[in-house]
Design a protein around this nucleic acid. Structure first.
Lengths: 193, 193
DNA sequence: CAGTCACACTAGCGCTTGCTTGGTTGAACC
DNA sequence: GGTTCAACCAAGCAAGCGCTAGTGTGACTG
């Protein structure tokens, strides 16, 4: 029970915890299971994390942080047309599912297990991510490319995207580029007014 | 530990269990909490349900069954145009969130806690529901109303819809009819080829 | 070479968990 | 008016839980 930092050891432990949380769920994953997976004894866990909840927060933060970074980079390096920006964001989202899948699944299912402090912190990251989407969708609506009201469209789109966690297989026959293209095609008008 | 039937008492207990599962999550809801909420002692619970998992299965089955019934009725009593059928299904989905919200939230979050037997049974109900959507979406694609590939479009649409559980407030300013209209508008082409 | 530090260990405390057991109740039925 | 039966209770077991306390280590650092 020393302190908490972000040592490389802690990073690795967080990655392993993510795997287990996906397989078993947070509540069903015991500190003894975690320790065994990590090759240490259960007591040693609390040298790296204050308590079990902090492990959960670390897992979720990792993926959310990366998703935000990747989304920003994608927007920074794509052409400024609304359709291209929609596509870039959707592709970035699917790509993070490849690299941080466990983290996102955990974020989706175990969000409510976070204590207030951790949730407050993470909710800001999530808001920042959704704001990116809102801006891009708003531009698309203004350009007549997408029909509907901003608040609703972005919720529908984020829903469709977040749901991909449940069925998208990064090793499957379709890559993220194709899927992003399909999603954008579905919600955009072919002959904008 | 007598047997399991579907007495009215059991129905009521299932409803209460749904509430608690939403508030606390399945794993964090103890049989003692359930019993207290139901006004009985924890041991008496096992007169109505074989074990804790069976309570979960009962909660989920209730909502899924109703969703299927309502969706079928909605399709049976609407005009045959693809757009009208899309709208009818979407509205039916949102309406079940009004009557069976707890059940659907639990189905969404706690699906993996089901044992194999219960999951096998429920997966058939879920498949039947998704088949309804697939048929309606396929017609819409064939009519040139919606762009894209059936498997992907239906996953995106079901994702957007299932996600509504997380934000749709039936007591809010918009009723299910408006929301359904918005969703259909978003994915349909204004000037079909 | 003494001191510090990150990391790990052993051992177990105090509590909660799902579920069982054996028995009681009160209404319904013939 | 004895029988049946769903519904409930009191009591508790065995297992498992998160977490703590106290104690080595071996590798760096002054």
């Amino acid at each position: 029970m020393t302190v908490m930092n972000d040592s490389p050891r802690r990073k690795e432990l967080t990655r392993l915890a993510g795997q287990l949380f996906v397989q078993e769920g947070f509540d069903r994953t015991t500190v003894r299971m975690l320790a065994q997976e990590m090759g240490i004894k259960s007591g040693s866990l609390f040298h790296h994390f204050r308590d079990k909840q902090e492990i959960l927060a670390a897992v979720i933060e990792e993926g959310t942080q990366n998703a935000l970074t990747q989304a920003r980079q994608a927007l920074a390096s794509c052409s400024p047309e609304p359709q291209a920006r929609l596509h870039a964001l959707a592709k970035a989202h699917l790509d993070t599912l490849l690299t941080d899948r466990n983290s996102h699944v955990v974020a989706l299912y175990e969000w409510r297990r976070l204590d207030d402090e951790a949730r407050d912190h993470l909710i800001h990251l999530r808001d920042a991510y959704e704001t990116l989407w809102n801006e891009v969708i708003e531009d698309a609506i203004d350009a007549g490319l997408v029909k509907g009201e901003l608040a609703l469209v972005s919720r529908f789109v984020l829903g469709a995207l977040n749901w991909t966690v449940r069925w998208y297989d990064p090793d499957g026959p379709r890559d993220s580029d194709e899927l992003a293209k399909e999603l954008v095609a579905m919600i955009t008008q072919e002959n904008p007014a």
